[in-house]
Design a protein around this nucleic acid. Structure first.
Lengths: 156, 156
DNA sequence: TATGGTGAGTTCGGATTTCCTACTCACCGG
DNA sequence: CCGGTGAGTAGGAAATCCGAACTCACCATA
Protein backbone atom coordinates (compact mmCIF):
# COMPACT_ATOMS: atom_id res chain seq x y z
CA UNK A 1 0.00 0.00 0.00
CA UNK A 2 1.27 3.40 -0.96
CA UNK A 3 2.51 5.49 1.94
CA UNK A 4 -0.24 7.91 2.85
CA UNK A 5 2.09 10.86 2.39
CA UNK A 6 2.45 10.30 -1.33
CA UNK A 7 0.75 12.99 -3.37
CA UNK A 8 -2.21 12.28 -5.62
CA UNK A 9 -1.24 10.17 -8.63
CA UNK A 10 -1.90 12.36 -11.63
CA UNK A 11 -0.89 12.73 -15.24
CA UNK A 12 -0.74 16.48 -14.84
CA UNK A 13 1.88 16.10 -12.13
CA UNK A 14 3.78 13.58 -14.26
CA UNK A 15 3.74 15.87 -17.26
CA UNK A 16 4.89 18.81 -15.17
CA UNK A 17 7.72 16.75 -13.73
CA UNK A 18 9.03 16.56 -17.29
CA UNK A 19 8.19 19.95 -18.74
CA UNK A 20 7.34 22.02 -15.69
CA UNK A 21 10.82 23.21 -14.89
CA UNK A 22 11.68 26.79 -15.62
CA UNK A 23 12.23 27.44 -19.35
CA UNK A 24 11.21 23.98 -20.55
CA UNK A 25 8.00 25.10 -22.19
CA UNK A 26 9.72 28.16 -23.62
CA UNK A 27 12.25 25.86 -25.23
CA UNK A 28 9.36 24.00 -26.78
CA UNK A 29 7.83 27.29 -27.95
CA UNK A 30 11.00 28.31 -29.77
CA UNK A 31 11.59 24.89 -31.21
CA UNK A 32 8.03 24.79 -32.53
CA UNK A 33 8.59 28.22 -34.09
CA UNK A 34 11.59 26.80 -35.90
CA UNK A 35 14.29 28.37 -33.76
CA UNK A 36 16.08 25.24 -32.67
CA UNK A 37 19.70 26.31 -32.46
CA UNK A 38 21.45 26.71 -29.17
CA UNK A 39 22.36 30.36 -29.47
CA UNK A 40 18.94 31.29 -30.82
CA UNK A 41 17.42 29.59 -27.79
CA UNK A 42 19.73 31.45 -25.43
CA UNK A 43 18.78 34.78 -26.96
CA UNK A 44 15.08 34.25 -27.43
CA UNK A 45 14.41 32.64 -24.06
CA UNK A 46 16.91 34.48 -21.91
CA UNK A 47 18.04 31.36 -20.07
CA UNK A 48 21.57 30.80 -18.77
CA UNK A 49 23.47 28.53 -21.11
CA UNK A 50 24.07 25.77 -18.60
CA UNK A 51 20.43 25.62 -17.58
CA UNK A 52 19.43 25.55 -21.22
CA UNK A 53 21.84 22.69 -21.89
CA UNK A 54 20.34 20.76 -18.99
CA UNK A 55 16.78 21.34 -20.23
CA UNK A 56 17.66 20.28 -23.73
CA UNK A 57 19.24 17.06 -22.47
CA UNK A 58 16.15 16.33 -20.42
CA UNK A 59 13.71 17.07 -23.23
CA UNK A 60 15.69 14.92 -25.65
CA UNK A 61 15.83 12.07 -23.12
CA UNK A 62 12.08 12.37 -22.64
CA UNK A 63 11.50 12.07 -26.38
CA UNK A 64 10.00 15.54 -26.69
CA UNK A 65 12.84 16.99 -28.75
CA UNK A 66 15.31 15.44 -31.14
CA UNK A 67 18.79 16.71 -31.88
CA UNK A 68 19.71 16.79 -35.54
CA UNK A 69 22.88 17.83 -37.30
CA UNK A 70 22.30 20.51 -39.90
CA UNK A 71 25.97 20.71 -40.83
CA UNK A 72 28.69 18.08 -40.78
CA UNK A 73 31.93 20.00 -40.88
CA UNK A 74 31.77 21.91 -38.62
CA UNK A 75 29.33 19.86 -36.63
CA UNK A 76 26.27 21.94 -35.89
CA UNK A 77 23.07 20.81 -34.24
CA UNK A 78 19.52 21.91 -34.13
CA UNK A 79 16.67 20.76 -31.92
CA UNK A 80 13.31 19.90 -33.37
CA UNK A 81 10.08 18.70 -31.83
CA UNK A 82 9.25 15.02 -32.05
CA UNK A 83 5.68 13.89 -32.49
CA UNK A 84 5.28 13.89 -28.71
CA UNK A 85 6.66 17.42 -28.64
CA UNK A 86 4.20 18.63 -31.26
CA UNK A 87 1.38 17.05 -29.32
CA UNK A 88 2.34 19.21 -26.37
CA UNK A 89 1.84 22.36 -28.42
CA UNK A 90 -1.87 22.69 -27.56
CA UNK A 91 -0.75 23.41 -24.01
CA UNK A 92 1.25 26.36 -25.33
CA UNK A 93 -1.67 27.63 -27.39
CA UNK A 94 -4.04 27.58 -24.46
CA UNK A 95 -1.46 29.24 -22.21
CA UNK A 96 -0.90 31.93 -24.82
CA UNK A 97 -4.61 32.53 -25.17
CA UNK A 98 -4.99 32.86 -21.40
CA UNK A 99 -2.04 35.21 -21.16
CA UNK A 100 -3.29 37.35 -24.02
CA UNK A 101 -6.66 37.76 -22.36
CA UNK A 102 -5.63 38.13 -18.75
CA UNK A 103 -2.20 39.70 -18.83
CA UNK A 104 -2.17 41.65 -22.07
CA UNK A 105 -5.66 42.99 -22.34
CA UNK A 106 -4.20 46.47 -22.79
CA UNK A 107 -0.86 46.02 -24.47
CA UNK A 108 -1.97 43.61 -27.19
CA UNK A 109 -0.52 40.26 -28.08
CA UNK A 110 3.13 40.08 -29.14
CA UNK A 111 2.29 37.34 -31.64
CA UNK A 112 -0.71 36.03 -33.50
CA UNK A 113 -1.19 32.64 -35.06
CA UNK A 114 -2.97 32.26 -38.36
CA UNK A 115 -4.95 29.14 -39.07
CA UNK A 116 -4.99 27.76 -42.60
CA UNK A 117 -8.67 28.62 -42.76
CA UNK A 118 -7.51 32.20 -43.15
CA UNK A 119 -8.54 33.51 -39.74
CA UNK A 120 -6.59 34.33 -36.66
CA UNK A 121 -6.20 31.18 -34.63
CA UNK A 122 -7.92 31.31 -31.26
CA UNK A 123 -7.83 27.93 -29.53
CA UNK A 124 -11.02 26.52 -28.08
CA UNK A 125 -11.01 23.32 -26.06
CA UNK A 126 -13.87 21.05 -26.96
CA UNK A 127 -15.17 17.62 -25.99
CA UNK A 128 -14.05 14.99 -28.48
CA UNK A 129 -17.28 13.06 -28.09
CA UNK A 130 -19.85 15.81 -28.63
CA UNK A 131 -17.82 18.69 -30.04
CA UNK A 132 -19.09 21.20 -27.52
CA UNK A 133 -16.80 23.75 -25.92
CA UNK A 134 -15.75 22.43 -22.53
CA UNK A 135 -16.76 24.26 -19.37
CA UNK A 136 -15.75 23.60 -15.81
CA UNK A 137 -19.28 23.12 -14.52
CA UNK A 138 -20.12 20.53 -17.15
CA UNK A 139 -17.32 18.20 -16.11
CA UNK A 140 -17.23 15.62 -13.34
CA UNK A 141 -14.03 14.05 -12.09
CA UNK A 142 -13.85 10.31 -11.46
CA UNK A 143 -10.76 9.15 -9.60
CA UNK A 144 -9.63 5.70 -10.61
CA UNK A 145 -7.29 5.10 -7.71
CA UNK A 146 -8.68 3.96 -4.36
CA UNK A 147 -8.13 6.40 -1.56
CA UNK A 148 -8.21 9.51 -3.72
CA UNK A 149 -11.45 11.35 -3.86
CA UNK A 150 -12.40 14.79 -5.02
CA UNK A 151 -14.34 17.41 -3.16
CA UNK A 152 -16.99 18.12 -5.74
CA UNK A 153 -17.01 20.94 -8.26
CA UNK A 154 -15.59 24.25 -7.15
CA UNK A 155 -17.56 27.01 -8.75
CA UNK A 156 -16.20 30.52 -8.64
CA UNK B 1 15.29 50.86 -26.80
CA UNK B 2 14.95 47.41 -25.38
CA UNK B 3 18.31 45.91 -24.56
CA UNK B 4 19.08 43.28 -27.15
CA UNK B 5 19.49 40.67 -24.45
CA UNK B 6 15.84 40.79 -23.43
CA UNK B 7 14.01 37.60 -24.26
CA UNK B 8 11.16 37.41 -26.73
CA UNK B 9 8.05 39.21 -25.48
CA UNK B 10 5.44 36.52 -25.19
CA UNK B 11 2.20 35.80 -23.39
CA UNK B 12 3.29 32.24 -22.78
CA UNK B 13 6.31 33.49 -20.88
CA UNK B 14 4.15 35.96 -18.97
CA UNK B 15 1.66 33.28 -18.04
CA UNK B 16 4.43 30.94 -16.94
CA UNK B 17 5.96 33.67 -14.80
CA UNK B 18 2.73 33.57 -12.82
CA UNK B 19 1.78 29.92 -12.82
CA UNK B 20 4.94 28.19 -13.99
CA UNK B 21 6.57 27.77 -10.63
CA UNK B 22 6.68 24.33 -9.11
CA UNK B 23 3.31 23.26 -7.65
CA UNK B 24 1.34 26.27 -8.90
CA UNK B 25 -0.62 24.35 -11.50
CA UNK B 26 -1.13 21.47 -9.08
CA UNK B 27 -2.65 23.93 -6.64
CA UNK B 28 -5.02 24.98 -9.38
CA UNK B 29 -5.82 21.34 -10.11
CA UNK B 30 -6.82 20.64 -6.51
CA UNK B 31 -8.73 23.87 -6.15
CA UNK B 32 -10.67 23.13 -9.33
CA UNK B 33 -11.43 19.67 -7.95
CA UNK B 34 -12.92 21.33 -4.90
CA UNK B 35 -10.06 20.59 -2.50
CA UNK B 36 -9.24 24.11 -1.44
CA UNK B 37 -8.15 23.76 2.17
CA UNK B 38 -4.59 24.17 3.22
CA UNK B 39 -4.05 20.73 4.68
CA UNK B 40 -5.82 19.04 1.79
CA UNK B 41 -3.51 20.87 -0.55
CA UNK B 42 -0.45 19.82 1.42
CA UNK B 43 -1.50 16.18 1.34
CA UNK B 44 -2.75 15.96 -2.22
CA UNK B 45 0.10 17.90 -3.80
CA UNK B 46 2.98 16.88 -1.57
CA UNK B 47 4.38 20.38 -1.36
CA UNK B 48 6.20 21.76 1.68
CA UNK B 49 3.88 23.94 3.71
CA UNK B 50 5.91 27.11 3.38
CA UNK B 51 6.18 26.80 -0.40
CA UNK B 52 2.49 26.13 -0.61
CA UNK B 53 1.75 29.22 1.46
CA UNK B 54 3.91 31.29 -0.89
CA UNK B 55 2.19 29.89 -3.99
CA UNK B 56 -1.24 30.56 -2.56
CA UNK B 57 -0.32 34.15 -1.78
CA UNK B 58 0.95 34.61 -5.30
CA UNK B 59 -2.07 33.04 -6.95
CA UNK B 60 -4.44 35.12 -4.85
CA UNK B 61 -2.48 38.29 -5.67
CA UNK B 62 -2.67 37.40 -9.34
CA UNK B 63 -6.43 37.02 -9.16
CA UNK B 64 -6.36 33.33 -10.01
CA UNK B 65 -7.56 32.12 -6.63
CA UNK B 66 -9.71 33.71 -3.96
CA UNK B 67 -9.56 32.98 -0.26
CA UNK B 68 -12.89 32.53 1.47
CA UNK B 69 -13.79 31.82 5.06
CA UNK B 70 -15.88 28.71 5.50
CA UNK B 71 -15.99 29.02 9.28
CA UNK B 72 -15.91 32.05 11.52
CA UNK B 73 -14.93 30.78 14.94
CA UNK B 74 -12.41 29.27 14.54
CA UNK B 75 -11.42 31.13 11.42
CA UNK B 76 -10.95 28.67 8.60
CA UNK B 77 -10.24 29.43 4.97
CA UNK B 78 -10.62 27.74 1.70
CA UNK B 79 -9.20 28.66 -1.69
CA UNK B 80 -11.40 28.68 -4.74
CA UNK B 81 -10.73 29.49 -8.37
CA UNK B 82 -11.78 32.88 -9.69
CA UNK B 83 -13.08 33.28 -13.21
CA UNK B 84 -9.49 33.76 -14.39
CA UNK B 85 -8.50 30.59 -12.57
CA UNK B 86 -11.28 28.59 -14.19
CA UNK B 87 -10.20 29.89 -17.57
CA UNK B 88 -6.78 28.42 -16.94
CA UNK B 89 -8.28 24.97 -16.53
CA UNK B 90 -8.06 24.09 -20.25
CA UNK B 91 -4.30 24.14 -19.80
CA UNK B 92 -4.66 21.44 -17.16
CA UNK B 93 -6.95 19.36 -19.35
CA UNK B 94 -4.55 19.40 -22.27
CA UNK B 95 -1.61 18.62 -19.99
CA UNK B 96 -3.54 15.71 -18.49
CA UNK B 97 -4.45 14.40 -21.91
CA UNK B 98 -0.81 14.56 -23.03
CA UNK B 99 0.38 12.86 -19.85
CA UNK B 100 -2.21 10.12 -20.15
CA UNK B 101 -1.16 9.34 -23.70
CA UNK B 102 2.59 9.72 -23.41
CA UNK B 103 3.43 8.82 -19.84
CA UNK B 104 0.66 6.42 -18.84
CA UNK B 105 0.01 4.45 -21.96
CA UNK B 106 0.49 1.27 -19.94
CA UNK B 107 -0.60 2.07 -16.42
CA UNK B 108 -3.87 3.81 -17.26
CA UNK B 109 -5.07 7.21 -16.17
CA UNK B 110 -5.49 7.87 -12.45
CA UNK B 111 -8.55 10.02 -13.16
CA UNK B 112 -11.13 10.46 -15.85
CA UNK B 113 -13.34 13.42 -16.51
CA UNK B 114 -16.92 12.96 -17.60
CA UNK B 115 -18.55 15.53 -19.83
CA UNK B 116 -22.22 16.32 -19.33
CA UNK B 117 -22.88 14.77 -22.72
CA UNK B 118 -22.38 11.44 -20.97
CA UNK B 119 -19.04 10.50 -22.50
CA UNK B 120 -15.55 10.54 -21.14
CA UNK B 121 -14.10 13.99 -21.67
CA UNK B 122 -11.14 14.05 -24.01
CA UNK B 123 -10.07 17.60 -24.80
CA UNK B 124 -9.53 18.61 -28.40
CA UNK B 125 -8.13 22.01 -29.30
CA UNK B 126 -9.97 23.57 -32.21
CA UNK B 127 -9.89 26.80 -34.19
CA UNK B 128 -12.57 29.19 -32.97
CA UNK B 129 -13.16 30.50 -36.47
CA UNK B 130 -13.63 27.28 -38.42
CA UNK B 131 -14.09 24.66 -35.74
CA UNK B 132 -11.43 22.35 -37.12
CA UNK B 133 -8.99 20.55 -34.85
CA UNK B 134 -5.76 22.54 -34.77
CA UNK B 135 -2.56 21.05 -36.11
CA UNK B 136 0.94 22.41 -36.00
CA UNK B 137 1.45 22.42 -39.73
CA UNK B 138 -1.70 24.39 -40.39
CA UNK B 139 -0.63 27.34 -38.26
CA UNK B 140 1.59 30.28 -39.15
CA UNK B 141 3.10 32.58 -36.57
CA UNK B 142 3.00 36.34 -37.08
CA UNK B 143 5.14 38.31 -34.65
CA UNK B 144 3.71 41.71 -33.85
CA UNK B 145 6.80 43.19 -32.25
CA UNK B 146 9.54 44.66 -34.42
CA UNK B 147 12.81 42.83 -34.08
CA UNK B 148 11.29 39.48 -33.29
CA UNK B 149 10.73 37.11 -36.13
CA UNK B 150 10.27 33.39 -36.10
CA UNK B 151 13.84 33.20 -37.29
CA UNK B 152 15.14 35.00 -34.21
CA UNK B 153 15.77 38.67 -33.45
CA UNK B 154 16.59 40.83 -36.42
CA UNK B 155 20.19 41.82 -36.86
CA UNK B 156 20.63 45.10 -35.03
C1' DT C 1 50.63 31.43 -40.31
C1' DA C 2 48.27 34.42 -37.40
C1' DT C 3 43.78 36.71 -36.18
C1' DG C 4 39.32 36.89 -35.42
C1' DG C 5 34.62 34.98 -35.40
C1' DT C 6 30.84 31.48 -34.69
C1' DG C 7 28.34 27.57 -32.71
C1' DA C 8 27.71 24.69 -28.99
C1' DG C 9 28.32 23.93 -25.20
C1' DT C 10 31.11 23.31 -19.97
C1' DT C 11 33.02 25.22 -15.68
C1' DC C 12 33.11 28.26 -11.90
C1' DG C 13 31.74 30.52 -7.54
C1' DG C 14 28.15 32.78 -5.54
C1' DA C 15 23.12 34.07 -5.05
C1' DT C 16 18.56 32.37 -4.70
C1' DT C 17 15.00 28.73 -3.92
C1' DT C 18 13.44 24.75 -2.18
C1' DC C 19 13.08 21.26 1.14
C1' DC C 20 12.13 19.16 5.62
C1' DT C 21 11.20 19.17 10.38
C1' DA C 22 9.71 21.38 14.02
C1' DC C 23 7.29 24.96 16.07
C1' DT C 24 3.45 28.36 16.96
C1' DC C 25 -1.17 30.05 17.69
C1' DA C 26 -6.11 29.74 18.02
C1' DC C 27 -9.67 27.11 18.70
C1' DC C 28 -12.63 22.92 19.82
C1' DG C 29 -14.39 18.63 22.27
C1' DG C 30 -14.53 15.89 26.22
C1' DC D 1 -6.89 20.18 31.40
C1' DC D 2 -5.44 17.42 27.33
C1' DG D 3 -5.17 16.03 22.93
C1' DG D 4 -6.37 17.18 18.16
C1' DT D 5 -7.03 20.08 13.98
C1' DG D 6 -6.33 23.85 10.74
C1' DA D 7 -3.31 27.20 9.01
C1' DG D 8 0.40 28.67 8.79
C1' DT D 9 6.04 30.36 10.44
C1' DA D 10 10.97 29.53 11.49
C1' DG D 11 15.49 27.80 10.59
C1' DG D 12 19.15 25.58 8.52
C1' DA D 13 20.65 22.15 4.98
C1' DA D 14 20.27 20.89 0.18
C1' DA D 15 19.36 21.74 -4.47
C1' DT D 16 18.92 25.07 -8.31
C1' DC D 17 19.81 28.97 -10.70
C1' DC D 18 22.65 32.65 -12.37
C1' DG D 19 26.21 35.39 -15.24
C1' DA D 20 30.52 35.41 -16.90
C1' DA D 21 34.33 33.26 -18.44
C1' DC D 22 36.31 29.39 -20.60
C1' DT D 23 36.88 25.49 -24.06
C1' DC D 24 37.07 23.27 -28.42
C1' DA D 25 36.49 22.70 -33.23
C1' DC D 26 36.03 24.79 -37.23
C1' DC D 27 35.95 28.58 -40.93
C1' DA D 28 37.40 33.12 -43.25
C1' DT D 29 40.74 36.51 -44.42
C1' DA D 30 45.02 38.18 -45.36
Amino acid sequence: MAASKDPRPCSIADALALVGEKYSLLVLREVCLGNGRFDQLVRNIGAPRDILAARLRRLVDAGILAKRPYSERPQRFEYRPTQAGLELEPVLWTLKEWGDRHLRADSGTPMTLEHHCGNEFVPVVTCRACGEEARHRELTAHPRVPGWTVGGPAAA
